[in-house]
């Protein structure tokens, strides 16, 4: 929700709110439940990342089958035009705060299918706001964890009590680049709740 116009003090200037916010952010950072959403090849690597070798449960990430209980959607794999609307629906069914990681070339830009295919969406960021892009085809599970660590940096700066921070964030930049410098497109113009369909 964009709350840029809301009057009142900045939340992070209020000492108690800032402490609460920091605590909440700590909780969010360490408890990113991800939606069990695997479409194609990257889905296998996503499974491997949940497996004993890489074990994203270490980071407090467990898979949830229903979008309501998930905080993080890892778009793992090719999204076709037929599927894109469903991804959007799933994203809308997730509850705020929610995050999207685009995993692999297909979700980033259409990847191998960007040039020739008539049916593949060139980049999931046309449908849902993406927080982190992870390159690879498919990315190694370690690359996924790498991206998740970057996401956690971003989650840490997310303010629950104050404004919504959806600014772009450069992984390799200085400490907090581009803080509050970004126009936020109104992704929530439609009612966020998709209604009782579950994940159907």
């Amino acid at each position: 929700m964009t709350t840029d116009e809301r009057p009142g003090n900045r939340a992070d200037e209020q000492v108690h709110m800032a402490a609460v916010d920091e605590f909440l952010a700590w909780g969010k950072e360490h408890s990113l439940f991800y939606l069990l959403f695997a479409t194609a090849c990257c889905g296998i690597e996503l499974m491997q990342a949940g497996g004993p070798r890489y074990d994203v449960d270490r980071l407090g990430m467990i898979p949830r089958a229903t979008p309501r209980q998930a905080d993080l959607m890892i778009v793992a794999g090719t999204i076709t035009h037929k599927m894109a609307g469903r991804v959007r629906t799933l994203w809308e069914q997730m509850t705020e705060p929610r995050w999207v990681v685009s995993m692999g070339s297909c979700a980033n830009s259409g990847g191998p299918f960007s040039k020739w295919s008539y049916s593949v969406l060139n980049g999931i960021d046309k449908y849902v706001p993406v927080d982190i892009y992870i390159p690879g085809c498919p990315p190694r599970p370690e690359a996924l964890i790498d991206g998740v660590m970057a996401l956690r940096e971003r989650v840490k700066r997310y303010r629950t009590v104050g404004e919504r921070d959806r600014t772009p964030y450069i992984v390799a930049g200085p400490e907090a680049p581009f803080g509050g410098h970004c126009k936020v497109p109104d992704f929530t113009a439609k009612k966020p709740d998709g209604g009782g369909g579950g994940s159907a």
Binding site: F23, L24, W26, G27, K28, E29, H30, S31, G60, R68, D71, T95, E96, P97, T160, P192, D193, G195, G196
Partner: peptide
């Protein structure tokens, strides 16, 4: 030991958006 895990889960759940689905 991940002792803070349930604290983290708990306060995350506190901070989640409260949704009652349309059909509910």
């Amino acid at each position: 030991l991940g002792l803070g895990q349930f604290v983290a889960d708990g306060i995350k759940m506190l901070g989640k958006e409260d949704i009652v689905p349309t059909g509910a």
